[in-house]
Simulated assay, not measured.
Amino acid sequence: MLVARGHEVFATTRDAAKAERLGATAVVLDPLDRDAVRAAVRDAAPDVVVHQLTALSGTFDLKHFDRFFQQTNVLRTRGLDILLDAAVAAGARRFVAQGYTGWSNARTGGPVKTEADPLDPTPTRASRESLAAIRHIEATVPHTPGIEGIVLRYGSFYGPDNTLGKGGEMAEMIAKRRLPVVGAGTGVWSFIHIDDAARATVLAIESDRTGVYNIVDDEPVPVREWLPYVANVLGARAPMRVPVWLAKMLIGEHGVSMMTKVRGSSNAKASRELGWKPSYPTWRDGFRREFAG
């Protein structure tokens, strides 16, 4: 999308050939090597630096959430500091960082939260380090002197090459009835199609806005609604239902919280200030298009 809009893009990657096929100049480096990052950013001389580094692989582990996100949390803290320092040193005007919204919201009060609402003051034991990493992003990026900082809190991704996409791990679990509705299924999720997340990022890159923005679709939804819907779209039987006490043994306190207690997020601020509207306004349309055919 950036190349199509006339931007010159330098992309850190593990696969130089893939980056070059997309029209970017590939930069292969260790994002935790401060000297290498400084040199790469200096040589690129960017106007805008975008931090999208994650390190997720293997089976998604809700029971041991922080363990699964351990390396990503390092990239969201030490890796962020290294890249942001390099961006300031190189004279970049703007810095865009990946955040997250969903389970990180306070699990009290109404079902939908805005950027003005607090993050969870009492996270589950298994998610404390991951929430601390998210807090670090939001406390650092918009408040660094000498550079415009914006954090995009993406909702739960779905779409091509995602766990909730064709052939993805979560989609396969739903198709095989291995992802149940826990308790009353009252956890509220906010989704975003990966293409809409990319469009919002392009707008953030080209904007002069700073601060924190939720990037989610228009319809936060409880698990008891979206999970059976996806199963139906996939042509699978309705998901099983399990009581909370049994689910806690299988997916832990954090997994149960995501299925029964988490809150959704509003995209009103991004719509109003960034001029962004999702092409897939609701998860209903997006999932049906994603899994059709």
Score class of each variant (00 low, 15 high):
41 V>L: 08
37 V>F: 08
83 L>S: 08
62 L>K: 01
35 D>S: 14
68 F>R: 09
50 V>G: 01
77 T>I: 08
69 F>M: 13
38 R>L: 12
33 D>K: 10
60 F>W: 11
33 D>R: 11
82 I>Q: 03
78 R>K: 14
59 T>K: 14
63 K>I: 03
46 P>A: 12
74 V>S: 13
57 S>Y: 09
69 F>N: 14
53 L>S: 08
60 F>D: 01
65 F>L: 11
28 V>E: 05
37 V>T: 03
68 F>E: 01
53 L>P: 01
46 P>W: 05
36 A>I: 02
63 K>L: 10
45 A>W: 00
60 F>S: 06
63 K>S: 09
64 H>Y: 07
41 V>I: 12
40 A>D: 03
77 T>K: 12
28 V>W: 02
76 R>P: 00
48 V>Q: 05
39 A>N: 07
36 A>S: 11
61 D>E: 02
59 T>V: 15
50 V>N: 04
35 D>C: 06
37 V>H: 04
54 T>P: 01
62 L>T: 08
27 V>H: 02
41 V>W: 03
76 R>D: 07
46 P>R: 10
80 L>D: 06
81 D>G: 08
65 F>V: 10
30 D>M: 12
36 A>Y: 04
43 D>Q: 15
45 A>C: 10
81 D>N: 12
27 V>G: 06
56 L>C: 01
30 D>R: 09
67 R>E: 14
42 R>C: 00
44 A>N: 04
62 L>C: 05
52 Q>F: 14
48 V>G: 07
37 V>A: 04
58 G>H: 04
78 R>S: 14
49 V>E: 00
42 R>P: 01
60 F>I: 12
41 V>G: 02
55 A>G: 03
49 V>F: 03
67 R>P: 00
82 I>G: 03
62 L>V: 00
52 Q>E: 12
55 A>E: 10
47 D>V: 14
67 R>Q: 13
71 Q>M: 07
73 N>A: 13
49 V>N: 05
32 L>M: 10
80 L>P: 08
63 K>N: 05
57 S>R: 12
28 V>S: 07
81 D>W: 04
75 L>T: 04
47 D>Y: 12
38 R>C: 00
75 L>K: 07
43 D>A: 15
40 A>M: 13
61 D>V: 11
54 T>M: 10
49 V>Q: 01
70 Q>D: 12
61 D>Y: 00
65 F>P: 02
29 L>N: 04
50 V>D: 01
59 T>H: 11
33 D>F: 10
44 A>E: 02
81 D>L: 09
27 V>K: 15
58 G>C: 09
75 L>P: 03
35 D>L: 15
55 A>T: 06
51 H>N: 13
56 L>I: 11
32 L>Y: 02
30 D>S: 09
28 V>L: 07
33 D>L: 09
46 P>S: 13
42 R>N: 00
51 H>D: 03
26 A>P: 06
43 D>H: 14
53 L>V: 14
78 R>F: 02
78 R>I: 11
61 D>H: 05
52 Q>K: 06
34 R>M: 00
32 L>E: 00
44 A>Q: 02
39 A>L: 10
27 V>I: 15
57 S>D: 15
56 L>P: 03
82 I>D: 02
